[in-house]
């Protein structure tokens, strides 16, 4: 998919023509569409030009950022020009204003859902799965039995256990943490067991020539070698943890928490607050994933995918 400079120029030259045609079409349909199409086409043209440049750090960041910004601007324009009611789609500016005005509430919900529910459950669930994996690693029989079952369970809609766990552990964050534990356990277990099997015979033989027993082999060879798999599991589980904590709150929660806020504010049709919560959830999810990915780079610096 390489374009020479000539192709890039040609494309740049043909760009304005297409934009003109699109504008005429827009004007024929509805005059209000003209600025919308103009912004879209203009931004797309800039992006096409940027993408045709040599790939540098600046362009790889600027292109998606410009795309995202364009979408936000278009969203704002469409809502304002066409008078979309705020109970259907609030403009980004209103959402931004709401985020600014509701920082204490958002923070309270974040603490309740993310720090208490999701993070506690994540640590407990992943920790338990790691220990279980090490434990069943000594028994090939258990491995052969647990792996297919674990893989099967990992594909099930486990969020459905939320009403049961809410019944068992009460409305507060403990039940959310329990849902998260159940959700993250099996993906993590399966990944860790696969990781512990990832050493090759040469490496194990080397440890044997050092007369290394089970524990030194586990700590110095197999656990480090399992880390890429472990981190793959940890990364999958970041998203699962947030989803579990939020959805479990739909089944009952104290009067705080992201899931609680989303479901009640949706009921009151104050959608800007819902979008504010979703923004926080998205930021929290990305930051959580990013943090785990960063730790992965530190720990598995030796792995080919990190170089």
């Amino acid at each position: 998919m390489k374009h020479g400079p000539a192709a890039g120029l040609l494309r740049g030259g043909a760009g304005p023509l297409w934009i003109g045609a699109a504008l005429v079409c827009a004007a024929l349909v509805d005059l209000r569409l003209v600025p919308v199409v103009a912004v879209w086409a203009g931004a797309w043209w800039v992006n096409t030009w940027l993408a045709a440049q040599r790939r540098t750090r600046v362009t790889t960041l600027a292109v998606p950022l410009l795309f995202g910004l364009t979408l936000l601007v278009l969203w704002e324009m469409v809502v304002r020009l066409f008078g979309v009611p705020a109970v259907i789609l609030p403009p980004p500016s209103a959402i931004g204003a709401r985020i600014g005005a509701e920082v204490p509430t958002l923070w309270e919900d974040f603490v309740q859902t993310f720090l208490r529910g999701a993070l506690t459950g994540y640590v407990l669930g992943c920790g338990a799965a790691l220990l279980t994996a090490v434990a069943i690693d000594r028994s090939p029989f258990l491995q052969r039995g647990l792996l297919p079952v674990g893989n099967f369970i990992a594909a099930l809609p486990i969020v459905g256990t939320a009403p049961i766990l809410v019944m068992w552990f009460g409305f507060d964050w403990e039940s959310k943490a329990a849902v998260v534990v159940v959700m993250v356990f099996f993906p993590m277990l399966v990944n860790t067991v696969a990781g512990l099997a990832a050493t090759d015979a040469m490496q194990r033989d080397l440890m044997k020539t050092y007369a290394a027993g089970y524990w030194p082999t586990l700590l110095k060879l197999r656990l480090p070698a399992a880390m890429p798999f472990v981190f793959n599991g940890l990364k999958i589980c970041t998203t699962l943890a947030l989803i579990g904590a939020i959805v479990a709150e739909f089944f009952g929660s104290p009067t705080r928490g992201m899931g609680f806020r989303i479901s009640t504010e949706v009921g009151r049709l104050s959608l800007d607050m819902v979008w504010a919560e979703i923004t926080v959830a998205a930021l929290a999810g990305s930051a959580f994933y990013g943090a785990v990915a960063l730790a992965e780079r530190r720990v598995t610096f030796w792995h080919p995918s990190q170089r």
Partner: peptide, 21 residues
């Protein structure tokens, strides 16, 4: 270059939260 980073990032966020809305 425009869409792919967002598509990948979208996998890290709990999009299920939008469902009620």
């Amino acid at each position: 270059m425009s869409v792919m980073p967002w598509a990948i990032a979208s996998q890290t966020i709990p999009i299920l939260a939008i469902a009620p809305m």
